[in-house]
Amino acid sequence: MELKVNQDNCLGCGVCVVACPVNVSISPDVSGGHGSRTEEVIMMVENGVIKLFSEDKCTKCGTCQMFCPVDAIFLE
């Protein structure tokens, strides 16, 4: 299983960024809507859409997928 994003679907709302427990543990002040602050996290909103930075840190928990309102981030 791999973490994937579909940027065409993405709203850039950043819900996945703040929902991801790994992201939050790396940077508890993650601010999804405001854009990227550190590239240490798994994903961040950049230019209004989600972008993966360190997907190798993903624990495949599926939280992001649960919160994403538009199927823009998922495990496949």
């Binding site: 819900v15 960024v17 703040v18 929902a19 427990p21 992201n23 939050v24 508890p28 002040d29 993650v30 601010s31 999804g32 809507g33 599926g62 939280t63 649960m66 919160f67």
Partner: peptide, 22 residues
């Protein structure tokens, strides 16, 4: 407001980032 939970199909997820959404 944050922090919120989503419950679905056995999932019990809590969002816990310090970012506050309202």
């Amino acid at each position: 407001a944050n922090t919120k939970e989503v419950k679905d199909e056995g999932f019990d997820i809590k969002r816990s980032a310090e970012e506050v959404r309202n």
